[in-house]
Amino acid sequence: MSFSLYAATVPTYRQILGALAGVLDKAEAFCTEQGIDPAELVGARLIDDMLPLAFQVKQAAVHSLGAIAGAKQGQFSPSRDALPDSFADLKAVVAEAQAGLESLSPAEVGALEGRDVTFIAGDFRLEFVAEEFLMTFSLPNFYFHTVTAYDILRAKGVPIGKRDFVGQLRLKQG
């Protein structure tokens, strides 16, 4: 049985982004219940030299839907766009990535196999083929940023657990 590039990436991106959306809902509710300014959590960091929650959520979108777009274009660079600054904006970033991923077909993602993709950050360049870019660069970065977002919120007291991070499992059908 073969395992497609689509199956290895898109459903996982969708699962974890769905979980991230739920975690953001819980974080926003936590702010309301505890009387915390939402900006405090949106700008929260796990540790001083790490970037804030807003960056982590944005990068989850960048390393999912944005990575697929980069593979299509043959080039991927870090996003320099402004960070979301509210829970509404964070949730919109996640929703946009989810919607874009839902629109992708297995054939569309499968057609990326073997295509050249260059990661460019200033003068730094890394050359990949699409499947290695997605599996060895994008997917690990996606998980790093989603787990860091989760960890920031957990460290700030948001009542979330492992099930919240994992989200909706894809169980055997039939």
Rank of each mutant, 00 (worst) to 15 (best):
S86C: 04
V93A: 13
G114Q: 14
H145S: 04
A155E: 10
Q15T: 10
F133C: 00
Q15C: 00
V93Y: 07
L83E: 14
A60P: 07
V93I: 11
L41T: 13
A92H: 13
S77Q: 09
A121G: 01
A29S: 08
S103D: 15
L153G: 05
L17I: 10
K26G: 02
P140G: 11
L17A: 11
G122N: 10
Q34R: 15
V42F: 05
I47K: 08
Q56L: 06
P78K: 10
S2T: 15
Q56T: 11
S2G: 08
T118N: 01
L112T: 12
E102P: 04
P52F: 02
A54M: 02
G167A: 12
G122R: 12
L51T: 05
I152W: 06
A27F: 08
K72S: 10
E33C: 04
Y150I: 04
A8F: 09
E28S: 13
A19V: 05
R154T: 02
R115G: 06
E132I: 08
H145C: 12
M1D: 11
L134N: 05
E28R: 12
I68G: 00
C31P: 12
A69Q: 13
F119N: 01
G122F: 09
A111V: 05
V57A: 07
F165I: 04
Q98D: 13
A92E: 15
E131S: 07
G74D: 13
P106C: 12
G174N: 06
V23F: 08
D37C: 01
K172P: 07
L17Q: 10
K72I: 09
P84G: 10
T146L: 14
L171K: 12
I47M: 06
R170N: 07
A149E: 09
L90Q: 11
L5S: 01
I120G: 00
M50K: 05
Q75M: 14
E127T: 01
H63R: 03
A44M: 06
Q15S: 00
Q98W: 07
P52V: 00
F87L: 12
L51R: 12
L17V: 11
A44R: 04
V57I: 13
E40V: 15
P140M: 01
I160K: 02
S138D: 03
T12V: 15
F3V: 15
Q173N: 09
V57S: 07
K91E: 08
S86M: 06
A19H: 04
D116V: 07
A29D: 13
G110W: 03
K72L: 09
A88E: 14
V10F: 11
S4I: 12
Q98N: 12
A27R: 08
C31Q: 05
L41Q: 09
L41M: 07
V129L: 02
I47Q: 00
T32W: 05
Y6V: 09
A61C: 00
P52K: 00
G100I: 14
A130G: 00
L65N: 07
V10L: 01
L104E: 15
